[in-house]
Amino acid sequence: MNHRHLGRSGLMVSEIAYGNWLTHGSQVEKEAALACVRAALEEGITTFDTADVYAATRAEEVLGEALAGERRAGLEICTKVYWPTGPGPNDRGLSRKHVFESIHGSLRRLRTDYVDLYQAHRYDYATPLEETMLAFADLVRQGKALYVGVSEWRAEQIEAAAPLARELKIPFVSNQPQYSMLWRVIEDQVIPASERAGLGQIVWSPIAQGVLTGKYRTGQPLPVGSRAAHEDGARFIAKFLTDDLLGRVQQLQPIAQEAGLTMAQLAIAWVLQNRSVSAAIVGATRPEQVRENVKAAGVKLDDGLMRRIDEVLGEAVVRDPARTASPEKRP
């Protein structure tokens, strides 16, 4: 397993990170989830990503159990705060109250004294940015979070947070966006803003919710047990299930074969060609998926192959920066 610096920080993360969104605590039984984490560890993955909201906090519990007994200094554990974790008005967002209460819950569930990376899961329009960044700074001072980052923030939001982080002298090091050969909305604005601020990208959905594996085909039923067939995952994958796009994805198969890769490995290797990407997050429902996906680490795709991918996908690629995920302003 190769490792890369997270942005301009000294923190090293594994090129392939293991994430448990939509799997642990919901789509996958606990024993299967534990087996996937064991496989990740055996394959050299050291970076593990989760969030308090995943599976209504159960995902953190499962990950904490799976990592119990591992050498803590050999792991990079990342979690996030923003989305509702309870019924009250302060059980959400990035207020000082919720940030502090959320990390305490996360640490308890993850069975650790600190997280390596604590991320704002979305931008909170209802809370002053200064309040959030000061709360993050205090957590860093207390040793409960070593580094801080964001997820799915727009370029202007990153640019507003960066000088506050410098003023507070806290390591603001990462952004976690959706990124794949089909979904490139971060390239024009978010990546340049992140580079100026010293942030690395820890990207999620590099295989576009499974679409880039080629398992979804025009006119055929959804594969049993697939993300598209699961209630929680279907709404995220629907935008990719068009006849035109699925047809284009099938044309990537000979390119993957020529490179000696599976379709999934090609997709993961593709995002890792971007020098701003520090790690690609993969999820799994079976250990063998983990073992196959890690083979994308260290793969170099030549310029000609990259051009052929662009030619095949053409207008199916989403590039509009306005599609960067951001919640509506709360009253």
Rank of each mutant, 00 (worst) to 15 (best):
N2A: 10
S14N: 10
I16E: 07
A17K: 10
G19Y: 04
N20G: 13
N20E: 12
E31R: 11
L34I: 07
V37S: 07
R38E: 15
A39V: 00
A40V: 05
E42T: 09
E43Y: 01
T46F: 00
A51H: 10
D52V: 06
V53E: 01
A56F: 12
T57E: 15
A59E: 04
G64C: 09
E65V: 10
A66V: 01
G69D: 10
R72D: 08
R72T: 04
G74F: 01
K80Q: 02
T85E: 11
N90A: 11
H98W: 08
S102Y: 05
G105D: 12
D113G: 15
R122N: 08
Y123I: 03
Y125I: 01
V140A: 04
V140W: 08
V148H: 09
S151P: 06
A165N: 06
R166P: 02
F172C: 02
V173P: 07
E195D: 13
R196M: 00
G200C: 11
Q201K: 11
V203N: 01
S205F: 03
S205I: 05
S205Y: 03
G210E: 07
G210S: 07
V211Y: 01
G214H: 08
G214P: 12
L222D: 12
V224S: 15
G225T: 08
H230N: 15
E231L: 14
F240P: 09
D243T: 14
D243I: 03
L246R: 12
R248M: 01
Q250Y: 02
P254W: 05
G260P: 05
G260R: 00
G260F: 00
T262S: 15
T262F: 01
A264T: 11
A267D: 12
L272S: 06
Q273I: 00
N274C: 02
S276T: 11
G283C: 07
A284P: 12
R286F: 07
R286Y: 11
P287D: 07
R291W: 00
V294N: 05
G298Q: 08
D302E: 13
D303H: 07
D303L: 09
G304Q: 13
M306Q: 14
L313Q: 12
G314Y: 07
V317Q: 13
R323P: 02
P327R: 01
P331Y: 00
